[in-house]
Design a protein around this nucleic acid. Structure first.
Lengths: 213, 213, 213, 213
DNA sequence: TATGAATGAGTATTCATTCAT
DNA sequence: CATGAATGAATACTCATTCAT
């Protein structure tokens, strides 16, 4: 076997990854994100990605079973990074209202510090990747984020902080509102993200809170 | 003549389009929308589109100067269709609040009756199209919708119906909230869109209205 | 039978051509010459030729069995036109030397009055046309001209006007010298063709005449 | 890296070419010459060239930025080869008359040893290549040869070896006379090239020399 | 007769992937 | 481990040709 990659691991356990392998994969993933964010999914060929990484295309094929696996790794990396930034600010808050604020502010912070990350994922999400044999395509990549948020809303409704509304609709809307920021940044690079976050906090606070009267 | 298409129309007059030409163009545009919605922009090759239309790929080149022109036609068709549905319900309302409700309900209606339309445009907007010379991508195809909405918000703020908020942020958020529906339909085809619309109306009504206390 | 064109005429005799057919063929041939001269053989598609003639491509296929036949007709027309101009000036001269001068001056006149004609033929001669099954290609289109010239040289040698040389080499050289003029005109449109003719007359007069000593 | 070819070499340094790269490029150039000489420019598709080279068409794109670059390389290769053969025999001669003889004999030698080379270039020069923006075509590929020859004539006129004539007309005529040989070889493969050269030497010697009387 | 709609083979080119070195 | 050479399928697009009208 010439490649490190095995689609089916006979032992069933995840393969032991060497240090260099982990490093290379990460390097390639980062360069893929940059390429996809800057060029769009369609133009982000393996050659372009390899060029940015300063390696030959063969290396990518060596560390990833195919372009699809690389893209999956990109998506996973972006969401893991996002989660690492957002979760601490959305968890263990005294109120769900505070959690919501933390989620929004954390998410905006993520977009600020990693502008290419969400852009890349958005470029991928619908642009690409063969749907195997079926016609379905949409990769449910936002699902984890969405359900985390949904839980906040449900708990807030449970403890009486939030009014009655569909947690799913609210979660979908908020997730999209945040993702749209990377698009706005494309055309308005000097946008004030702190103000943007404050607007969203206010917007969703009003949209969720109980009317006290 | 080998092709209907002329890049430079010497006469300067709008070319007389035959009935069959209009019909064929529309048919191809419709099939392109279906293909792009189902396969994603990257996989929606001219061959795929032609296959759905039951014609040879040459026919597409015969009626469109190139893939770019076809895509432009798709986008234009989608937005023209959407506007025809939404505008009557968002205009000439007694209040801006009613306009807002009309916009949301009309938009959801559009998504319901043309589920592939918005999906296709979303698949195009990112993912595709050579970045020409610069690094920017993202065709600003939502801009007209966004600014129409923004005007509603600004007028509502002007006449005291709406609280103070950033019309731009609100418009971006609402547009994205609506566009997300087509994505939700992918995974939840039986979703109750009337209820969804009501949720959005309530959400944005609360987010925009003045607090009466 | 849908088309006027029969590759094999059963009767063996040339088909009776209607007036309109002759006119149409000539019109198409003229437009083909212009297109080929201006665009080069590769770019001179039937669509381009049809456009210049103000007809649809179908018309060309109707009057010519295929592009090859059209090209053959173009070549024939060019040479027939050239011959009509050159022959009177190269024939019935008191000396072969005068014939030679007449040939050159007539040929230059032809290039002057029909600049596109020779250009078109040159563009065709090597650029195009499928070699059927074999690998041979060169259409011996210059052959008639060449042999006419060769005869002048042979007769001049026979009657002692010309020195001993290979009539074939001399004929080839002179024919090419004349054909080159259309190329020179491309880059030097203001060239003095009368002077050019005089130079060629002197050149070939010296090259052919007997040294009197 | 997917392709050896970079349109813009960022470093500004001449790219290091590996042995295999040089060899492949040369092989492809040679096969392109053969294909163009045998089939004509129009029929000499990349597929045909690749077939002759025994490689896939992708290889050509790998080593050449496009067909245009390949064709440029072909032309350059042909002229470099020709110059290497002709120049030593046309330079450093005691007289310009000897230079002229050397040029002719060298050129005929070149045609003899590389019959396809000039044929290929001739097939390219007309027939091919998009006319960019203007209507001009005809790449002035013969220009260097022509001007080299022109210089011989001018110097010969300067030092009194040659009579007064237009160096340009003489150069054009001689260049065409030589190029015509490859055409003659198509139809008369057994032609005596040494005799042909002698004929041309005599022809142009007489055409250029001063009449001594 | 003439049109123009349609075809299908052919074009150059791109690119994920493989593999000998 | 890494390279880079090579493949072959896929891409958008062109064009001579056919044919119903």
């Amino acid at each position: 076997m010439q490649s490190k990659i095995q689609t089916t691991d006979q032992g069933g356990r995840p393969e032991r990854q060497s240090f260099i392998e982990i490093a290379r994969r990460k390097q390639i993933i980062e360069c893929a994100i940059t390429a996809i964010a800057e060029l769009g999914y369609a133009q982000a060929s393996l050659a372009q990605i390899a060029k940015r990484a300063g390696v030959s295309t063969g290396v990518i094929s060596y560390y990833f079973a195919g372009k699809d696996e690389l893209i999956d790794a990109v998506i996973h990396h972006v969401y893991a990074t996002g989660e690492a930034i957002v979760r601490p600010r959305a968890s263990n808050q005294p109120t769900e209202r505070a959690s919501l604020r933390g989620f929004i502010e954390g998410s905006v912070d993520f977009v600020r510090t990693h502008p290419n990350y969400m852009r890349a994922v958005k470029n991928i999400s619908r642009g690409g990747a063969a749907p195997a044999d079926g016609l379905l395509l949409d990769r449910p990549i936002d699902e984890p984020r969405r359900s985390g948020l949904q839980r906040i809303f449900e708990q807030g409704q449970g403890n009486g902080e939030f009014r009655a509304f569909s947690p799913r609709v609210m979660a979908v809307t908020l997730v999209e509102a945040i993702d749209a920021i990377s698009l706005q940044l494309d055309t308005h690079p000097d946008m004030d993200l702190t103000a943007y976050a404050a607007e969203l906090v206010e917007l969703f606070d009003r949209a969720t809170r109980k009317t006290e009267d």
